[in-house]
Simulated assay, not measured.
Amino acid sequence: MRESSGLRDKCPYKHSICSMRKHKHICQALYPIRDVIIIRRSRTAISVEILRAAMEGAKKTHIVYRANLNFEVVNRYLTMLEEKGLIEKRDNLYITTEKGKEFQEIARELGL
């Protein structure tokens, strides 16, 4: 964003007329930087993160926050990981199995 020369300029985000020097931080907070690179995680990386969260046993909510996913996505992954025997559910806790720990180890060695 270019600096204002003291004149009231049109904000580049077109939300109002403002003195860009005084309101630059507000403009950036309301309209974040456009050139942010979004990197998507692979299915393997997400699975490893879920298994890591459940290493000592974790509720679904903890897994959601730790893996930075929503409940819908976590439910799909937990179902898949249970079917493959990488995680198991005991009461309200999900726990990484020995097979899941081996999967994590292999993924780490391969840099996935």
Rank of each mutant, 00 (worst) to 15 (best):
M1A: 07
H15W: 00
S16A: 15
V36P: 03
A58V: 05
E83T: 12
N70C: 10
M55D: 12
E56V: 08
Y13E: 15
I63Q: 00
H62M: 12
D9N: 07
E102W: 13
P12K: 06
A54W: 09
S16E: 14
D9L: 13
K10Y: 11
Y94R: 06
K99W: 03
E105C: 08
R52Y: 09
A58T: 05
M20K: 14
T96G: 06
R21T: 14
N70L: 04
K101W: 07
S5V: 03
F103N: 06
L110Y: 07
I50W: 07
R108K: 11
S5Q: 00
E105P: 01
V36R: 15
V74P: 09
I39F: 13
I33E: 10
Y65F: 10
A54M: 06
M20Y: 07
I26A: 04
I63W: 00
H15Q: 08
D9C: 08
D35W: 07
R40L: 08
V48G: 07
V73Y: 01
N92K: 12
C27A: 07
V64A: 00
S4Y: 03
K24H: 14
R21P: 06
I63N: 01
S47E: 05
M55T: 11
V73K: 05
G85Y: 05
G85S: 02
E109A: 15
A29V: 06
M55I: 15
A58H: 00
H25T: 05
H25P: 03
A67C: 08
K89N: 09
A53M: 03
H23D: 02
L81Q: 01
K22H: 00
V73H: 13
T97Y: 02
I46W: 10
P12C: 01
P12I: 09
A67N: 02
N70P: 04
L93R: 04
E88K: 08
G100T: 05
A53K: 03
I63L: 11
L78E: 06
A45P: 06
H15D: 14
T97F: 11
C27E: 07
V36H: 09
M20N: 02
I26P: 03
T44L: 09
M20W: 13
K60Q: 13
R40P: 12
S5L: 07
L78C: 08
M55Y: 15
S42D: 02
T61M: 09
R34H: 10
H23G: 09
E3D: 14
K89D: 07
E98D: 15
I38P: 01
I50E: 03
M55G: 01
I106P: 04
E109G: 08
G57C: 08
K10P: 02
V74I: 12
S42A: 01
R41E: 11
E72H: 13
L78D: 00
S42P: 03
V48P: 01
K59D: 14
A29C: 12
H15C: 15
R41T: 00
I46H: 02
A29L: 11
K24A: 02
K84D: 06
L7C: 10
K84C: 09
I37T: 01
Y31P: 01
N75D: 11
N70T: 05
T44F: 08
I33F: 08
Y31A: 02
S42K: 04
A53E: 06
R8F: 04
K101G: 13
I95N: 04
R66C: 03
I46G: 02
K99M: 10
D9A: 09
R41N: 11
R52G: 00
E72L: 14
E98A: 13
T44N: 04
M1K: 10
R90E: 11
